[in-house]
Design a protein around this nucleic acid. Sequence first.
DNA 1: TAGATTGTTAATCGATTAACAATC
DNA 2: TAGATTGTTAATCGATTAACAATC
Lengths: 222, 222
Amino acid sequence: MSSSKRKRYKFPKTTVERLSYYFRALEEMAKRGIDTISSEALGNKLNIKSSQIRKDLSYFGYFGKRGMGYDVRYLLKELRYILGLDREWPVIVVGAGHLGLAISRYPGFDMRGFSIKAIFDMDTEKVGTDIDGIPIKHVDEMEHFIRENEIEMAIIAVPAEHAQNVADTLAAEGIKAILNFAPVTLKAEDDIRILSVDLTTKLEALAYYMSFNKDKLWKIIN
Amino acid sequence: MSSSKRKRYKFPKTTVERLSYYFRALEEMAKRGIDTISSEALGNKLNIKSSQIRKDLSYFGYFGKRGMGYDVRYLLKELRYILGLDREWPVIVVGAGHLGLAISRYPGFDMRGFSIKAIFDMDTEKVGTDIDGIPIKHVDEMEHFIRENEIEMAIIAVPAEHAQNVADTLAAEGIKAILNFAPVTLKAEDDIRILSVDLTTKLEALAYYMSFNKDKLWKIIN
DNA sequence: TAGATTGTTAATCGATTAACAATC
DNA sequence: TAGATTGTTAATCGATTAACAATC
């Protein structure tokens, strides 16, 4: 039923994330006036093996010239298209705490076409104000706003204990992708894409790595 | 020379991150008065297979009772020890922009023993003020502060173009672990642990997944 | 042409999972 | 004891990498 006749190619989940790194590095190179780059040179810059880069790109097409490398502007254009960055993505943020506000102002989002259209919160002190032109609205207005503005992506920046609730509400209101900053594992139907950014987990991983060679563990990794 | 006679066990890099999820889930359970849990039940909560959980834990010891599951408080205690969370970690933040300040106030860090001791910036308007009791100091004072307070961990929250510079400085001043929020790949010597949190990459991955089944790509994943 | 570098194959390496004997 | 659930083995699955023929 849902499976098309078209051949499907699998690729590692890690590839999409790396494409994003390639895109960013190429953007910087374009800015510096570099117009051709080899997988070797790009790999050096990103600490990624050149064969990994070539393989990642090969899942999507032929972008290089043998003996020459990749045309920076051309590859940028293709990656922009592959990553879906050739359009504007209207986004809402739920949670107007320190983190929610910092995220709303994060310059990196706007640069990539992610445009924060509104921030939602329950705190009536904050509702009605705005942050750099982005209105803070009451969560009760969320459903209407999502439909009115055809929002598909949302960022959750509320405390852990409210996050699942917010996710359920967003799902019911038609959101298709969620970037979650709350430190919980969210549950949702399969048609909703959820990715989490975990601020503490990585710091904890660092703490682990700082501890382990100080003779604290029975068994040590390599 | 550096290799001890002790047997070394390898385990996946992903394991440490999952231990951190287990810890968090168990903490919440302890708070709710649950005192025993099976790998099956914990897995359901975290969308992780029970065999994965048992395997992860098995790298570090025997924590469960067959037929009974795991004692929540005991496992918490062991995980706290393994993750190095049984001590205080003094941390500094470099960059007093919106993100740096939000990070400095993030309640999740303090809860885990990560204590932000100071924020460093070059902006003389900000230097001398404080955020919730955390002083903002000039970067020139950083080296002295690091030595004086025996800081080993730092968080980078400066613009991409300054991040490598800051990392080099931190390394020279004796920092051993860096959590990087700047959207660049940092280079450093092997004895310095760097992990990055990338705010845009995940949003880009979501954008990709929202685009791909809209007939945009030649080759489609599964 | 000679040199460089891609795109792709095949081998290796690493991580997850099912299955089950051990045992509480 | 019977039932439940661990700890561990072995199979499977997935991702990375070296190597090289193709070709600019």
